[in-house]
Amino acid sequence: MAEKKRPLIIDCDPGIDDAECILMLQGCGQFDILGITPVHGNVSLDKTSANALYLNEKYGINAKVVKGADKAIIVRHPRAEYAHGDTGLAGLKVKTEDLTFSEGYAWDFIWEKAKEYEGELEIAAVGPLTNIALAVLKHPEITKMVKRLVIMGGSTTFGNVTEYAEFNIHQDPHAAKIVFEAGFDLTMVGLDCCVNTYLDEKDKKDVVEAAQGTSVCDVIEDFDRFEDESIDNWPITEDKKAYYRSHKVMCDAVAAAVCIDPGIAVLSDKHVIVDVDGKMTIGQTVVDWFGFSGAPNLHLAMSVDRERFVNMYLECIRSYKEGE
């Protein structure tokens, strides 16, 4: 008897690593993906939502794609075209002419599905948390109706936008604070954890090889080429360039892996506070290591088993073999 699939909504801002994340969540075969709810983030909403629509079709997911927020609750921070290309998906030709969005707003869709699936719904949120926060503002009781929320965001140490702030949280710190304090069963997969779960040169070759003869070959090859070319153009030393080429970071995909199998991560329950106020630290996820400030509010991913992650990713890619 086939095991019942786990109902899932993917809230995302595709984004190259979002595309890799969605690829895994579909490829692993464990989920009934009910919807993809794009949000502003890496690039503007019109681009992330077009990309979500395209990936939904490309990966054969057949989920509803319901647009979310086009801006953060309070702040207006710059986007990340530099990392994802102008369209958000490297140089990929995103065709959406025959595809349509589902009616309504992301937050209402998430709420409706939380009710419909009576405590079984899981959410992978790998962009700024605006859509999830708005669902909480409208329906605070949603937190007890969602089985698990796994986010890619924040960091326990260094940031990638400021000294300590990670991009997704920095894009909408107020939304993150709402979500962190709302009472979800929340798992945080932070930047430092994701950076340590990289692909090296050999893994990258294996990925491109695994993609041959699959329906996602063009996507994988395009991302691979785009990232190497981008590194060539970065204003950094050759040593650093060599380092980045042998350390491909794919943050959202690491969160996907934790969503698929939490056992891949070392998790520790902690109280984490989002700073919305600091001149220097806005968007920092401040981890209370010593329990000064109250009960834990999330499961913090401390590390992820890199080898298992790489194998999981390769397996997920192979599942897209044509005819299978």
Partner: peptide, 8 residues
């Protein structure tokens, strides 16, 4: 505010 955010 919630109305402004959720019914743009």
């Amino acid at each position: 505010a919630t109305f402004i955010l959720t019914y743009p």
